[in-house]
């Protein structure tokens, strides 16, 4: 048996995986506003905030708070570490699938 690659537990949860996928799909250096991300994910603000906090704690997320026409807006984007973690995660997934594919 080959060693099974470990999947990053911060990313390997349905909601956070969707958040990470969406942010990784942005061009590097781009930031997305919180409500827009919420729309793309179809998640409640509270639910999304909870997951964003976990991603931020892991150092994957960069949160910028700013004002647009006096309204506070939060912009989100992956850190370099976050982008790397997502790439590693998808690579690990592929390795796992390639390993189990023979047994089907």
């Amino acid at each position: 048996m080959t060693t099974v690659p470990e999947l990053d537990p911060v990313i390997h949860a349905q909601a956070r995986l969707r958040v990470m996928t969406s942010l990784a799909a942005l061009a590097e250096g781009d930031r997305i506003a919180f409500p827009r991300l919420q729309q793309v994910l179809d998640m409640t603000a509270g639910n999304l905030s909870t997951h964003l906090r976990k991603l931020e704690d892991a150092g994957y997320l960069e949160i910028t708070k700013t004002h647009e026409r006096r309204t506070p807006v939060t912009y989100l984007g992956l850190t370099r570490q976050g982008r790397r973690a997502f790439e590693d995660y998808t690579a690990a997934l592929r390795t796992l699938l390639a390993g189990s594919g023979n047994g089907q």
């Binding site: 470990e6 999947l7 349905q14 995986l17 996928t21 998808t90």
Partner: peptide
């Protein structure tokens, strides 16, 4: 820890593809 999750590798990859399409 990953193995204890109900999310299989196949499901994860499908989820990524689906969300990418949506984005």
């Amino acid at each position: 820890r990953a193995d204890t999750s109900d999310l299989s590798a196949e499901k994860s990859l499908a989820l990524i593809e689906e969300q990418r399409g949506r984005v």
